[in-house]
């Protein structure tokens, strides 16, 4: 394939990565933004989403679309409930002390991951996509008769991948509406601004926290359900999304949702395109170093503005 079509393909793949990453990372950003909690177990909520999706889909017969739809509803709900329970039994008792919370979520990471290993096992298992037409894409070329279209071999995507991108956009718009247009969003923003003041005004901060922690985890689970027909479910699959989400949240300016989404698109797309030219490992090394240096020299993030 020539470079032009190849880049288009990389961009399309990158857009899928960016969509899933934007969902996962906004869950992490939401939790950090409102609760000031760094949730190291976030990747495991992603993994749980995928594993539960497999479990639900394999228990529901009929056309793949039924199993997948059920998973799309159930997996985020179950994972959100688990996360809210973890918040109420562990994090709340630590009074959300930043350092102790990180240590506790590291513990939670191993508990979720290893419990999955004990029950679900070490195998990678697929979930069938509800629909999956291959869509060949054209490319333009200069011929003797002027501009012409042709279909390079291998330049294609699937209807499902396009649907993933669309779904991510819809969900993110929903989150934005939830935060800005609803009463519960108002409560979250009030809690984020000043926890003590919120308490004084009678906002049930504890319940808001449990809700936010659950919602953050549910977003990760939803992202995983969307990606599992492309990637397969495995008990160690939470590692990369966690790392990438960290990168995105930090570059996007800790806890800012618009910054996070911008950064997810940036990282998702560049990850796809850089991988065309460099090895993926080198790309990851550069990305992690970039994050470390952003935190050292520009803690408000690349897209954030300095808080007054």
């Amino acid at each position: 394939m020539e470079l032009g079509p190849y880049l288009l393909l990389a961009t399309l793949e990158g857009a899928v990565t960016a969509a899933v990453l934007a969902l996962t990372a906004s869950g992490l950003a939401l939790v950090f933004g409102v609760m000031r909690v760094v949730n190291v177990a976030h990747g495991e909520f992603f993994m749980l989403g995928a594993v539960i999706a497999w479990w639900v889909a394999s228990h529901i017969g009929g056309a793949p679309v039924w199993g997948f739809t059920a998973a799309l509803v159930l997996a985020p709900l179950i994972v959100g409930a688990i996360a809210a329970a973890a918040d109420m039994t562990v994090l709340k008792r630590l009074d959300y002390d930043p350092e102790r919370t990180i240590v506790a979520t590291i513990g939670l990471l191993y508990i979720l991951q290893q419990a999955t290993l004990m029950t679900y096992g070490p195998d990678a298992r697929p979930v069938e996509p509800p629909f999956n037409q291959r869509l060949a894409l054209p490319w333009i070329e200069w011929t003797e008769t002027g501009l012409g279209l042709y279909w390079p071999w291998g330049l294609s995507t699937t209807s499902y991948k396009l649907a993933v991108i669309g779904a991510a956009v819809v969900v993110l718009l929903g989150i934005w509406a939830l935060m800005t247009r609803t009463r519960i969003g108002l409560l979250m923003r009030a809690t984020q601004l000043d926890r003590d003041m919120a308490l004084a005004f009678g906002i049930p901060v504890e319940r808001v926290y449990a809700l936010v922690f659950g919602l953050g985890a549910a977003l990760a689970a939803l992202a995983a359900v969307l990606i599992v027909p492309i990637q397969q479910a495995h008990y160690l699959m939470g590692h990369d999304p966690l790392l990438l989400s960290f990168i995105v949240v930090i570059i996007g300016g800790l806890g800012s949702l618009p910054g996070t989404i911008l950064a997810a698109i940036f990282i998702g797309l560049t990850d796809g395109i850089i991988s065309v030219f460099f090895s993926p490992t080198l790309a990851k090394i550069l990305a992690t170093l970039l994050v470390a240096l952003v935190l050292v020299f520009r803690p408000q993030g690349l897209f954030g503005t300095r808080a007054a």
Binding site: V90, V103, Y110, Q114, M118
Partner: peptide
Amino acid sequence: AYMLMAGVVLVLLTL
């Protein structure tokens, strides 16, 4: 799944 012990101990210690 021996790392499960590590996870449980971490959570119990912090608590």
